[in-house]
C-alpha cells in the first residue's frame, strides 16, 4: 500500500512537471475559478449577514423630531402599544442611538465626537404581529406631529432578499459554467499526460502492472493540480484579507461584519475541497475514458 501510494505520488509529481506548460495552464484556470468562487462566497456571506441584522424583529421604525415634547412621545408610545397589530414598542432616545452607533462603528467614534451636536434622532421601534399590517401602522404614524419619518424595514428586507437571490442564482450559474470549463481543461491536461506516456503505459501493461498502478498516478496528478490551484487561491485571499475586510465593512456598514477567521476558514475549506474535487474528478473521467479497454 505504501509502495503503491509512494509510487503514485512520485509519478504524479514527475508527470506534472513533464507536462509543465499544460499543468500551469490548468492550475491557472483552476485558480481563476476558485477566486471567482470565493468572491461570490464572500459577497453572499456579507449580504446574508446584512439581511440577518436587518431582519431582526423590528419591522417599523419611526424617527422622532428633535423638537417633539417628551409628553407627546410618551402618549404616542402608549397609544401604539394599545393598537391590536402591535406587539411591542421600544423607545430609543437620542443618547441611546448615539451610544449604539458608536458601539457598532468604533472607527467613526472620532467623527461623531467632532460633531457639535448629536445628529441621530430618537426613534420608536415597533414590532408587528403580522408584517403585512405595516400600512395601518405606518399611516397612523405619519399623521403624528412628533414623527419625522417612517421607515419600512420590511420593504428593505424584501429588496435585499431579491438581490441576494439574483446574485446567488447568477453566481451559481457562472460558477457552474466556469467549473465545467475547468473540468474540461483538467480532462484534457490529463489526457495529454496519458498520451505523452503511452510508451510507459504499454510497458507497464506488458510487465503486468495492475490497472491501479497505471491509473492512479494520473488521478493524483489531477488532484495535485487542484490542490496547487487551491493553495495559490488561499494564499491570494490571505494576502487580500485586509482589502476584503475593508470592502465588507465599507459596503455593509450597517452590520457588524464578522468576516474574521471563521468565515476565512470556511472559505479555505470550500476552496480546497472544490479544487481537489474537480482535479480528481477531471482526471478520473479522462483516465477512465482513455485507459478503459
Amino acid at each position: 500500500m505504501f509502495v503503491f501510494i509512494g509510487f503514485s505520488i512520485r509519478r504524479a509529481w514527475l508527470g506534472f512537471w513533464h507536462n509543465g506548460l499544460m499543468s500551469v495552464a490548468a492550475t491557472a484556470t483552476m485558480v481563476l475559478m476558485l477566486l471567482l468562487l470565493s468572491g461570490l462566497l464572500i459577497l453572499l456571506t456579507g449580504l446574508d449577514a446584512t439581511l440577518k441584522y436587518v431582519q431582526q424583529e423590528v419591522q417599523v421604525m419611526a424617527y422622532i423630531k428633535d423638537s417633539a415634547p417628551g409628553g407627546d412621545i410618551a402618549s404616542l408610545q402608549d397609544s401604539l402599544a394599545h393598537m391590536p397589530q402591535v406587539t411591542q414598542v421600544t423607545y430609543v432616545s437620542k443618547d441611546q442611538a448615539y451610544k449604539d452607533f458608536v458601539a457598532r462603528h468604533p472607527d467613526e467614534a472620532e467623527v461623531m465626537k467632532s460633531l457639535p451636536t448629536n445628529p441621530l434622532p430618537a426613534s420608536l421601534q415597533i414590532n408587528l404581529r403580522e408584517p403585512n399590517d405595516y400600512l395601518d401602522v405606518a399611516s397612523y404614524l405619519n399623521k403624528q406631529p412628533a414623527v419625522d419619518r417612517v421607515l419600512n424595514i420590511k420593504q428593505t428586507v424584501d429588496q435585499m432578499v431579491t438581490i441576494i437571490g439574483v446574485l446567488r442564482t447568477a453566481g451559481t450559474v457562472i460558477l457552474l459554467v466556469v467549473g465545467l470549463i475547468v473540468l474540461f481543461i483538467i480532462v484534457n491536461t490529463i489526457r495529454l499526460a496519458v498520451v505523452s506516456r503511452a510508451d510507459e503505459i504499454e510497458i507497464m501493461r506488458l510487465v503486468g502492472a495492475s490497472d491501479a498502478f497505471i491509473r492512479w498516478p494520473f488521478i493524483f496528478e489531477g488532484g495535485f493540480v487542484g490542490f496547487l490551484g487551491a493553495a495559490i487561491t488561499i494564499v491570494l485571499l490571505w494576502l487580500a484579507q485586509g482589502p476584503i475586510t475593508g470592502f465588507l465593512s465599507e459596503y455593509f456598514k450597517v452590520l457588524p461584519v464578522e468576516a474574521g477567521t471563521a468565515v476565512g476558514q470556511n472559505i479555505a475549506l470550500i476552496v480546497l475541497g472544490t479544487g481537489v474535487g474537480i482535479g480528481v474528478l477531471g482526471s478520473y473521467l479522462s483516465v477512465r475514458s482513455y485507459l478503459h479497454r
Binding site: F7, M204, I214
Partner: peptide, 8 residues
C-alpha cells in the same frame, strides 16, 4: 521500472 510498477 518493471518491478516498481508491480509494487515490489
Amino acid at each position: 521500472f518493471a518491478l516498481e510498477v508491480i509494487g515490489t
